[in-house]
Write a protein that binds this DNA or RNA. Sequence first.
DNA 1: TATTGTTATACTCTATAACTATA
DNA 2: TATAGTTATAGAGTATAACAATA
Lengths: 150, 150
Amino acid sequence: MQHFDVNWLLSRAAHGLREAMDTEAMAHGTSIRGQIVLTALVQNSHPDARPYSQLALGHALGVDKTTMTALLDKLERQGLVVRTPDPNDRRARIPVPTEAGRELQAKLYHQLAAVEDRVLADLAPAERDVLRSLLRRIISTEEPVEGSCV
Amino acid sequence: MQHFDVNWLLSRAAHGLREAMDTEAMAHGTSIRGQIVLTALVQNSHPDARPYSQLALGHALGVDKTTMTALLDKLERQGLVVRTPDPNDRRARIPVPTEAGRELQAKLYHQLAAVEDRVLADLAPAERDVLRSLLRRIISTEEPVEGSCV
DNA sequence: TATTGTTATACTCTATAACTATA
DNA sequence: TATAGTTATAGAGTATAACAATA
Protein backbone atom coordinates (compact mmCIF):
# COMPACT_ATOMS: atom_id res chain seq x y z
CA MET A 1 0.00 0.00 0.00
CA GLN A 2 2.96 2.29 -0.37
CA HIS A 3 2.84 3.28 -4.00
CA PHE A 4 -0.79 3.32 -4.99
CA ASP A 5 -2.58 3.96 -1.74
CA VAL A 6 -3.80 7.44 -2.64
CA ASN A 7 -7.01 5.89 -3.87
CA TRP A 8 -7.55 4.22 -0.53
CA LEU A 9 -6.66 7.34 1.45
CA LEU A 10 -9.00 9.47 -0.65
CA SER A 11 -11.87 7.01 -0.27
CA ARG A 12 -11.45 6.79 3.50
CA ALA A 13 -11.13 10.53 3.98
CA ALA A 14 -14.06 11.30 1.69
CA HIS A 15 -16.27 8.73 3.34
CA GLY A 16 -15.47 9.95 6.85
CA LEU A 17 -15.98 13.61 6.10
CA ARG A 18 -19.17 12.97 4.18
CA GLU A 19 -20.58 10.91 7.01
CA ALA A 20 -19.85 13.61 9.59
CA MET A 21 -21.40 16.33 7.46
CA ASP A 22 -24.36 14.21 6.45
CA THR A 23 -25.18 13.53 10.09
CA GLU A 24 -25.39 17.28 10.66
CA ALA A 25 -27.36 17.90 7.47
CA MET A 26 -29.84 15.12 8.16
CA ALA A 27 -30.56 16.65 11.56
CA HIS A 28 -32.04 19.49 9.50
CA GLY A 29 -33.99 17.24 7.16
CA THR A 30 -31.62 17.37 4.20
CA SER A 31 -28.33 15.84 3.07
CA ILE A 32 -24.87 17.05 2.25
CA ARG A 33 -25.58 16.54 -1.44
CA GLY A 34 -28.83 18.48 -1.22
CA GLN A 35 -26.92 21.29 0.44
CA ILE A 36 -24.26 21.23 -2.28
CA VAL A 37 -26.92 21.59 -4.97
CA LEU A 38 -28.69 24.31 -2.99
CA THR A 39 -25.44 26.18 -2.45
CA ALA A 40 -24.53 26.05 -6.13
CA LEU A 41 -27.96 27.47 -7.02
CA VAL A 42 -27.82 30.22 -4.41
CA GLN A 43 -24.30 31.24 -5.34
CA ASN A 44 -25.21 31.29 -9.02
CA SER A 45 -28.27 33.50 -8.60
CA HIS A 46 -26.44 36.80 -8.95
CA PRO A 47 -28.19 39.17 -11.36
CA ASP A 48 -25.31 38.89 -13.81
CA ALA A 49 -25.00 35.10 -13.72
CA ARG A 50 -26.53 32.86 -16.35
CA PRO A 51 -28.91 30.54 -14.49
CA TYR A 52 -28.07 26.84 -14.47
CA SER A 53 -30.15 24.42 -16.44
CA GLN A 54 -30.35 21.00 -14.80
CA LEU A 55 -27.75 19.71 -17.21
CA ALA A 56 -25.37 22.61 -16.59
CA LEU A 57 -25.82 22.23 -12.85
CA GLY A 58 -25.06 18.54 -13.02
CA HIS A 59 -22.01 19.18 -15.13
CA ALA A 60 -20.73 21.83 -12.75
CA LEU A 61 -21.09 19.46 -9.80
CA GLY A 62 -19.85 16.39 -11.60
CA VAL A 63 -23.02 14.32 -11.39
CA ASP A 64 -25.03 12.63 -14.10
CA LYS A 65 -28.30 14.18 -15.29
CA THR A 66 -30.26 11.23 -13.90
CA THR A 67 -28.67 11.77 -10.50
CA MET A 68 -29.50 15.46 -10.73
CA THR A 69 -33.13 14.63 -11.48
CA ALA A 70 -33.31 12.56 -8.28
CA LEU A 71 -31.60 15.24 -6.19
CA LEU A 72 -33.92 17.97 -7.47
CA ASP A 73 -36.97 15.75 -6.99
CA LYS A 74 -36.15 15.53 -3.30
CA LEU A 75 -35.38 19.23 -2.94
CA GLU A 76 -38.61 20.14 -4.74
CA ARG A 77 -40.63 17.77 -2.58
CA GLN A 78 -39.23 19.58 0.46
CA GLY A 79 -40.17 22.96 -0.98
CA LEU A 80 -36.56 24.10 -1.15
CA VAL A 81 -36.34 24.41 -4.94
CA VAL A 82 -38.79 24.95 -7.79
CA ARG A 83 -38.17 24.05 -11.42
CA THR A 84 -39.06 26.94 -13.71
CA PRO A 85 -39.24 26.78 -17.51
CA ASP A 86 -36.32 28.15 -19.49
CA PRO A 87 -37.73 30.99 -21.64
CA ASN A 88 -35.07 30.35 -24.29
CA ASP A 89 -35.41 26.58 -24.56
CA ARG A 90 -38.66 24.82 -23.88
CA ARG A 91 -36.90 21.50 -23.32
CA ALA A 92 -34.86 22.87 -20.41
CA ARG A 93 -35.82 23.71 -16.84
CA ILE A 94 -34.15 26.17 -14.50
CA PRO A 95 -34.04 25.08 -10.83
CA VAL A 96 -34.51 28.08 -8.53
CA PRO A 97 -34.16 28.02 -4.72
CA THR A 98 -37.25 29.08 -2.80
CA GLU A 99 -37.14 31.45 0.14
CA ALA A 100 -37.20 28.41 2.45
CA GLY A 101 -34.36 26.93 0.41
CA ARG A 102 -32.26 30.05 0.80
CA GLU A 103 -32.85 30.16 4.53
CA LEU A 104 -31.94 26.52 5.07
CA GLN A 105 -28.87 26.87 2.88
CA ALA A 106 -27.61 29.86 4.85
CA LYS A 107 -28.21 28.18 8.20
CA LEU A 108 -26.57 24.91 7.18
CA TYR A 109 -23.68 26.67 5.52
CA HIS A 110 -22.18 27.76 8.83
CA GLN A 111 -23.05 24.59 10.70
CA LEU A 112 -21.48 22.37 8.06
CA ALA A 113 -18.40 24.58 8.00
CA ALA A 114 -18.13 23.93 11.73
CA VAL A 115 -18.27 20.18 11.13
CA GLU A 116 -15.59 20.41 8.48
CA ASP A 117 -13.53 22.46 10.91
CA ARG A 118 -13.84 19.71 13.48
CA VAL A 119 -12.81 16.92 11.11
CA LEU A 120 -9.91 18.97 9.74
CA ALA A 121 -8.90 20.12 13.23
CA ASP A 122 -5.37 18.74 12.91
CA LEU A 123 -4.70 20.73 9.75
CA ALA A 124 -3.56 24.34 9.97
CA PRO A 125 -5.41 26.80 7.70
CA ALA A 126 -2.48 26.89 5.28
CA GLU A 127 -2.48 23.09 5.12
CA ARG A 128 -6.18 23.04 4.30
CA ASP A 129 -5.50 25.42 1.45
CA VAL A 130 -2.76 23.12 0.19
CA LEU A 131 -5.12 20.17 0.39
CA ARG A 132 -7.84 21.99 -1.56
CA SER A 133 -5.33 23.04 -4.18
CA LEU A 134 -3.93 19.54 -4.63
CA LEU A 135 -7.39 18.00 -4.88
CA ARG A 136 -8.50 20.58 -7.44
CA ARG A 137 -5.51 19.72 -9.58
CA ILE A 138 -6.28 16.01 -9.42
CA ILE A 139 -9.90 16.60 -10.40
CA SER A 140 -9.02 18.87 -13.28
CA THR A 141 -6.64 16.20 -14.57
CA GLU A 142 -9.36 13.61 -14.43
CA GLU A 143 -11.99 15.75 -16.08
CA PRO A 144 -12.12 19.46 -16.88
CA VAL A 145 -14.53 21.36 -14.63
CA GLU A 146 -15.65 24.94 -15.04
CA GLY A 147 -14.44 27.16 -12.22
CA SER A 148 -17.73 28.67 -11.09
CA CYS A 149 -18.44 26.30 -8.26
CA VAL A 150 -15.09 25.13 -7.05
CA MET B 1 -18.57 26.22 -1.88
CA GLN B 2 -15.67 28.15 -0.49
CA HIS B 3 -15.60 27.11 3.14
CA PHE B 4 -16.86 23.56 3.27
CA ASP B 5 -16.01 22.25 -0.16
CA VAL B 6 -13.32 19.81 1.00
CA ASN B 7 -15.99 17.15 1.21
CA TRP B 8 -16.94 17.74 -2.41
CA LEU B 9 -13.33 17.86 -3.60
CA LEU B 10 -12.52 14.63 -1.76
CA SER B 11 -15.55 12.85 -3.18
CA ARG B 12 -14.79 13.91 -6.72
CA ALA B 13 -11.11 13.06 -6.51
CA ALA B 14 -11.78 9.71 -4.85
CA HIS B 15 -14.44 8.77 -7.37
CA GLY B 16 -12.28 9.69 -10.34
CA LEU B 17 -9.20 7.86 -9.15
CA ARG B 18 -11.19 4.81 -8.14
CA GLU B 19 -12.84 4.64 -11.52
CA ALA B 20 -9.54 4.85 -13.39
CA MET B 21 -7.94 2.16 -11.25
CA ASP B 22 -11.02 -0.06 -11.30
CA THR B 23 -11.05 0.00 -15.07
CA GLU B 24 -7.51 -1.36 -15.07
CA ALA B 25 -8.24 -3.90 -12.32
CA MET B 26 -11.39 -5.18 -14.02
CA ALA B 27 -9.42 -5.80 -17.19
CA HIS B 28 -7.67 -8.45 -15.07
CA GLY B 29 -10.87 -9.89 -13.62
CA THR B 30 -10.71 -8.23 -10.23
CA SER B 31 -11.42 -4.82 -8.67
CA ILE B 32 -9.48 -2.14 -6.91
CA ARG B 33 -10.98 -3.21 -3.62
CA GLY B 34 -10.10 -6.83 -4.22
CA GLN B 35 -6.54 -5.74 -4.92
CA ILE B 36 -6.43 -3.68 -1.72
CA VAL B 37 -7.49 -6.71 0.31
CA LEU B 38 -5.04 -8.94 -1.52
CA THR B 39 -2.22 -6.46 -0.99
CA ALA B 40 -2.92 -6.17 2.71
CA LEU B 41 -2.81 -9.97 3.03
CA VAL B 42 0.39 -10.34 1.00
CA GLN B 43 2.15 -7.56 2.88
CA ASN B 44 1.09 -9.02 6.21
CA SER B 45 2.34 -12.52 5.47
CA HIS B 46 5.87 -12.00 6.76
CA PRO B 47 6.99 -14.80 9.07
CA ASP B 48 7.06 -12.42 12.04
CA ALA B 49 3.63 -10.87 11.40
CA ARG B 50 0.51 -11.97 13.22
CA PRO B 51 -1.93 -13.10 10.51
CA TYR B 52 -5.11 -11.06 10.05
CA SER B 53 -8.42 -12.53 11.05
CA GLN B 54 -11.27 -11.30 8.87
CA LEU B 55 -12.27 -8.86 11.57
CA ALA B 56 -8.74 -7.52 12.00
CA LEU B 57 -8.36 -7.19 8.26
CA GLY B 58 -11.61 -5.27 7.98
CA HIS B 59 -10.58 -3.00 10.81
CA ALA B 60 -7.20 -2.32 9.22
CA LEU B 61 -8.84 -1.38 5.94
CA GLY B 62 -11.76 0.51 7.47
CA VAL B 63 -14.54 -1.72 6.19
CA ASP B 64 -17.33 -3.47 8.04
CA LYS B 65 -17.12 -7.22 8.70
CA THR B 66 -20.11 -7.80 6.42
CA THR B 67 -18.37 -5.95 3.62
CA MET B 68 -15.25 -8.00 4.25
CA THR B 69 -17.25 -11.22 3.99
CA ALA B 70 -18.50 -10.18 0.57
CA LEU B 71 -15.03 -9.14 -0.62
CA LEU B 72 -13.47 -12.41 0.54
CA ASP B 73 -16.32 -14.43 -0.98
CA LYS B 74 -15.45 -13.00 -4.37
CA LEU B 75 -11.69 -13.47 -3.94
CA GLU B 76 -12.20 -17.04 -2.79
CA ARG B 77 -14.52 -17.80 -5.72
CA GLN B 78 -11.73 -16.61 -8.02
CA GLY B 79 -9.19 -18.84 -6.29
CA LEU B 80 -7.11 -15.88 -5.11
CA VAL B 81 -7.65 -16.41 -1.38
CA VAL B 82 -8.52 -19.32 0.89
CA ARG B 83 -9.99 -19.04 4.37
CA THR B 84 -8.08 -21.17 6.85
CA PRO B 85 -9.15 -21.94 10.40
CA ASP B 86 -7.48 -20.01 13.21
CA PRO B 87 -5.74 -22.63 15.42
CA ASN B 88 -6.18 -20.39 18.48
CA ASP B 89 -9.87 -19.50 18.03
CA ARG B 90 -12.26 -21.83 16.31
CA ARG B 91 -14.70 -18.98 15.62
CA ALA B 92 -12.15 -17.06 13.56
CA ARG B 93 -10.83 -17.62 10.04
CA ILE B 94 -7.53 -16.50 8.57
CA PRO B 95 -7.66 -15.44 4.92
CA VAL B 96 -4.50 -16.50 3.08
CA PRO B 97 -3.59 -15.56 -0.48
CA THR B 98 -3.07 -18.48 -2.87
CA GLU B 99 -0.18 -18.65 -5.27
CA ALA B 100 -2.49 -17.32 -8.00
CA GLY B 101 -3.49 -14.53 -5.64
CA ARG B 102 0.10 -13.56 -5.02
CA GLU B 103 0.88 -13.54 -8.72
CA LEU B 104 -2.10 -11.41 -9.63
CA GLN B 105 -1.39 -9.01 -6.78
CA ALA B 106 2.21 -8.54 -7.91
CA LYS B 107 1.23 -8.00 -11.52
CA LEU B 108 -1.56 -5.56 -10.71
CA TYR B 109 0.55 -3.73 -8.18
CA HIS B 110 2.74 -2.16 -10.83
CA GLN B 111 -0.02 -1.62 -13.35
CA LEU B 112 -2.22 0.15 -10.84
CA ALA B 113 0.71 2.25 -9.72
CA ALA B 114 1.04 3.34 -13.33
CA VAL B 115 -2.62 4.35 -13.41
CA GLU B 116 -2.21 6.34 -10.22
CA ASP B 117 0.84 7.96 -11.74
CA ARG B 118 -1.21 8.99 -14.75
CA VAL B 119 -4.04 10.50 -12.70
CA LEU B 120 -1.59 12.29 -10.41
CA ALA B 121 0.56 13.39 -13.33
CA ASP B 122 0.22 17.08 -12.47
CA LEU B 123 1.56 16.55 -8.95
CA ALA B 124 5.28 16.46 -8.31
CA PRO B 125 6.52 13.55 -6.16
CA ALA B 126 6.91 15.84 -3.16
CA GLU B 127 3.35 17.07 -3.61
CA ARG B 128 2.03 13.53 -3.67
CA ASP B 129 3.80 12.90 -0.39
CA VAL B 130 2.19 16.02 1.07
CA LEU B 131 -1.21 14.83 -0.15
CA ARG B 132 -0.75 11.38 1.41
CA SER B 133 0.37 12.94 4.66
CA LEU B 134 -2.57 15.33 4.85
CA LEU B 135 -5.06 12.58 4.05
CA ARG B 136 -3.58 10.29 6.69
CA ARG B 137 -3.98 13.00 9.29
CA ILE B 138 -7.63 13.56 8.35
CA ILE B 139 -8.35 9.85 8.56
CA SER B 140 -6.64 9.43 11.89
CA THR B 141 -8.70 12.31 13.26
CA GLU B 142 -11.89 10.66 12.11
CA GLU B 143 -11.03 7.25 13.43
CA PRO B 144 -7.81 5.77 14.80
CA VAL B 145 -6.23 3.26 12.41
CA GLU B 146 -3.34 0.96 13.13
CA GLY B 147 -0.29 1.74 11.09
CA SER B 148 0.36 -1.63 9.45
CA CYS B 149 -1.40 -0.89 6.21
CA VAL B 150 -1.23 2.84 5.85
C1' DT C 1 -30.98 14.23 -36.10
C1' DA C 2 -29.51 15.93 -31.67
C1' DT C 3 -30.54 17.43 -26.96
C1' DT C 4 -33.17 18.14 -22.17
C1' DG C 5 -35.15 15.84 -18.91
C1' DT C 6 -37.67 11.71 -16.96
C1' DT C 7 -38.33 6.92 -15.90
C1' DA C 8 -36.97 2.25 -15.23
C1' DT C 9 -33.42 -0.53 -14.03
C1' DA C 10 -29.11 -2.31 -12.22
C1' DC C 11 -24.83 -2.42 -9.94
C1' DT C 12 -21.62 -1.08 -6.25
C1' DC C 13 -20.63 0.29 -1.60
C1' DT C 14 -22.09 0.56 2.91
C1' DA C 15 -24.47 -0.64 7.14
C1' DT C 16 -28.05 -2.85 10.46
C1' DA C 17 -30.17 -6.83 12.38
C1' DA C 18 -30.71 -11.60 13.16
C1' DC C 19 -28.53 -15.82 13.21
C1' DT C 20 -24.60 -19.77 14.17
C1' DA C 21 -20.81 -21.38 16.36
C1' DT C 22 -17.76 -20.71 19.36
C1' DA C 23 -15.41 -18.23 23.59
C1' DT D 1 -22.63 -12.91 28.01
C1' DA D 2 -19.68 -11.61 24.41
C1' DT D 3 -17.32 -12.34 19.95
C1' DA D 4 -16.27 -14.09 14.77
C1' DG D 5 -18.40 -14.72 10.89
C1' DT D 6 -22.53 -15.34 7.77
C1' DT D 7 -26.86 -14.13 5.72
C1' DA D 8 -30.64 -11.21 4.51
C1' DT D 9 -31.92 -6.85 3.66
C1' DA D 10 -32.00 -1.95 2.92
C1' DG D 11 -30.21 2.47 1.76
C1' DA D 12 -27.29 5.77 -0.82
C1' DG D 13 -24.71 6.81 -4.94
C1' DT D 14 -23.80 6.01 -9.66
C1' DA D 15 -24.69 4.85 -14.39
C1' DT D 16 -27.04 2.90 -18.83
C1' DA D 17 -30.93 2.59 -21.87
C1' DA D 18 -35.34 3.88 -23.57
C1' DC D 19 -38.53 7.39 -23.95
C1' DA D 20 -41.15 12.18 -24.66
C1' DA D 21 -40.80 16.77 -25.83
C1' DT D 22 -38.37 20.06 -28.16
C1' DA D 23 -34.43 21.98 -30.86
